[in-house]
C-alpha cells in the first residue's frame, strides 16, 4: 500500500518540479516575497516614526510653568497656539490655574489629543514622558528639602546577570514564535496545494483516471497527504529563508 502511495507522491512532486510556475510560486516566490513584504513594512514604519520625531507640533499649553516647557522641548519640537486646531499634529495640555509644587497636593493636568491621528498620538506619548520627567524633578526638589534623593526611595538595587551563552541571548522570543510561525507558514503554503491536488484534480477530471486503477483509495490519500506536507514544508522553509535574508540585510 505504501509503495503505491510513494508512486503517487513521486508523480506529484515531479509535476511540481517540472512546472516552472508551480516551482516559482511554491519555492522561489516566498523567498523573494518575505523580504519585500517585511522590508516594506519596516521601511514604512521607520519613516513614519522618523517623520513623527521631526514634526513641529502645534500645542495649546495652558498655565504650564517654563520649567516644564523646557523639559517638553527636549522631547518634541513644538509651537504654541492659543486655539484648538483641527490639524493632525495638534495636542493640548492644561495645568490648573493655581497649584503649588512644594505641597503634597496632586496637580491635575489634562491632555487633549486625537486618537485618530498618528502624530497627535505620538505627541501624547511625548507629553506624558515630559510630564513624568517634570514629576521626577518636583519629587527631587521636595526630597532635597529633607536631605533625600530619588534613589533613597528605592532601597533595593537589582542587577540582572544573563548567564546564557552570548550567541543565544535574546532568542527566547524567537524560539517561542518559531513553532507558531512554522505552523502558520505550513498551513498557508499547503492550503492551495491541498485544494489543487484534491478538488482541483477532480474538476480537471484527473481523479477518475486515478480511481479506476489498481490502487486503493487509502494509498491515493496517503500519497497526496505526503505530497501536501512536503510541499507545505518546502514552502515554509523558503519563507524562513527569505526572512533570514531580510534579517541579514538589516
Amino acid at each position: 500500500m505504501f509503495k503505491d502511495s510513494m508512486i503517487i507522491f513521486k508523480k506529484e512532486m515531479k509535476n511540481i518540479f517540472k512546472d516552472k510556475r508551480s516551482f516559482f510560486s511554491i519555492i522561489i516566490l516566498p523567498f523573494i516575497l518575505m523580504p519585500i513584504i517585511f522590508g516594506t513594512i519596516g521601511f514604512v514604519s521607520n519613516s513614519q516614526e522618523k517623520g513623527a520625531q521631526e514634526t513641529t507640533y502645534i500645542l495649546q499649553i495652558k498655565n504650564a510653568p517654563d520649567e516644564f516647557k523646557n523639559i517638553l522641548s527636549q522631547f518634541i519640537k513644538f509651537e504654541e497656539t492659543q486655539s484648538i486646531s483641527e490639524e493632525g499634529n495638534f495636542a493640548a495640555l492644561e495645568f490648573p490655574q493655581t497649584y503649588n509644587t512644594d505641597s503634597l497636593e496632586k496637580i491635575n493636568v489634562k491632555v487633549l489629543f486625537r486618537s485618530t491621528s498618528q502624530k497627535s498620538s505620538f505627541a501624547l506619548g511625548q507629553i506624558k514622558a515630559a510630564l513624568n520627567a517634570y514629576q521626577n524633578l518636583i519629587l527631587q526638589k521636595n526630597l532635597e528639602k529633607h536631605d533625600l534623593s530619588l534613589d533613597d526611595l528605592k532601597p533595593i538595587n537589582i542587577s540582572e546577570v544573563d548567564i546564557a551563552p552570548k550567541e543565544s541571548q535574546g532568542t527566547q522570543f524567537l524560539s517561542m514564535m518559531v513553532p507558531y510561525m512554522l505552523l502558520i507558514y505550513i498551513f498557508a503554503g499547503a492550503m492551495g496545494i491541498g485544494m489543487d491536488t484534491t478538488s482541483g484534480e477532480k474538476e480537471r477530471g484527473g481523479l477518475a483516471a486515478l480511481l479506476v486503477n489498481q490502487v486503493s483509495r487509502t494509498s491515493i490519500a496517503i500519497g497526496k497527504i505526503l505530497y501536501v506536507i512536503v510541499t507545505g514544508m518546502l514552502n515554509s522553509v523558503s519563507t524562513f529563508g527569505g526572512e533570514e535574508l531580510l534579517i541579514n540585510i538589516l
Binding site: K11, K14, N15, K18, D19, R204, G205, G206, A208, A209, V212
Partner: peptide
C-alpha cells in the same frame, strides 16, 4: 477494465 471518459482530462507538465 480500461476506462476513459470525455471528462477525464490529462493536465500538468508530465
Amino acid at each position: 477494465i480500461g476506462f476513459l471518459t470525455s471528462d477525464m482530462k490529462l493536465s500538468g507538465n508530465l
